[in-house]
Design a protein around this nucleic acid. Structure first.
Length: 281
DNA sequence: CTCCTGTCCTGCCGGC
DNA sequence: TGCCGGCAGGACAGGA
């Protein structure tokens, strides 16, 4: 799925396109995604004005009038297509939600694997929804820092890789940016989280911010199944240093492929981890 | 509690 | 070329 930079890119596009517009009809093309749609989902959205589009972690929050929030999570393969008034759109079998606005804008949620989520919450529900109630700080916000990260890692009986994938430690990271941040910080993904020293947590928090900021500037990274809300591809994947580069030379250190076999790929918690065993200790 | 494994679903890529 | 196994950026349930 899209991680924080990709989700943020979609959020910005949606905010620009939808804010101030009024939802007309909402067409649901199936009974649900990861979870069944609430029976009143479409009816509850119709006629509402979008007051702004926010984000928490990897969740997009479409704020509506009267305090309701339409929550959208892109899962692994979710895309949002914006079809301007009068624009064409060829139907796709994976178009699951089709929102028409009074302006003529259409916002289509397309998700081949259907791991995404779409549901409504009110203000109270937003606070109590489990994923939000336990979610860690936004890595690009003021609440995130080396000391905050160090504290969150204390007592964790898992590897730093798995800890950073945990949205309760820090919000918005996924497999790609965890691998990249650990590489930039020179920390092995195999290290136990609780052994990360303060100086390392500082370096790691800085690396997380830096890589997310660079990806955001590039408009979000893209693998084969992600597109921007506006249909443009992102290019940050060309800047990835370790993710998906098994066997390639480590770009930032003097080790050679002959010595180390290049960037290594291992499996942690059922997911691929890419790292340089020479540079990351 | 915390941690780990398996699972949801389709598409795509590489190997044979 | 065609088929098939493996793998994919996430989240969560359920079991240890």
């Amino acid at each position: 799925m899209p991680e924080l930079p990709e989700v943020e890119t979609v959020r910005v596009a949606l905010d620009r396109a939808m804010t101030g517009d009024v939802i007309g009809a909402v067409q649901l093309n199936r009974t649900g995604l990861r979870n069944p749609f609430a029976p009143d989902l479409a009816a509850r959205m119709a006629g509402r004005t979008v007051t702004g589009v926010g984000r928490r972690g990897k969740y997009i929050l479409v704020h509506l009038d009267r305090g309701d929030v339409f929550v959208l999570h892109l899962g692994m393969s979710g895309r949002v297509l914006l079809v301007p008034a009068g624009g064409d759109h060829a139907d796709d079998r994976h178009d699951h939600i089709d929102i028409s606005f009074q302006s003529g804008l259409r916002v289509i949620y397309n998700d081949a694997r259907r791991f995404g989520m779409a549901f409504m919450l009110d203000e109270a529900g937003l606070k109590s929804y489990p994923a939000f109630a336990t979610m860690g700080p936004e890595p690009l916000g003021n609440a995130f820092s080396g000391p905050v990260l160090a504290a969150a890692l204390q007592g964790r009986k898992t590897t730093i890789k798995n800890a950073l994938m945990d949205q309760r430690i820090v919000a918005g990271l996924g497999n790609i940016y965890v691998c990249e941040a650990l590489y930039d910080a020179g920390i092995s993904p195999l290290r136990m989280a609780a052994t990360i020293r303060k100086t390392e947590a500082e370096a790691l928090s800085n690396a997380i911010r830096a890589v997310l900021t660079r990806a955001l500037a590039a408009g979000g990274s893209t693998l084969r199944d992600y597109r921007h809300a506006n249909g443009d591809l992102g290019y940050f994947q060309q800047q990835l240093k370790v993710y998906g580069r098994e066997g390639a030379p480590c770009p930032d250190c003097v080790c050679t492929v002959e010595q180390t076999g290049g960037i290594r790929r291992i499996s942690q918690a059922g997911r691929s981890t890419f790292y340089c065993p020479q540079r990351q200790k």
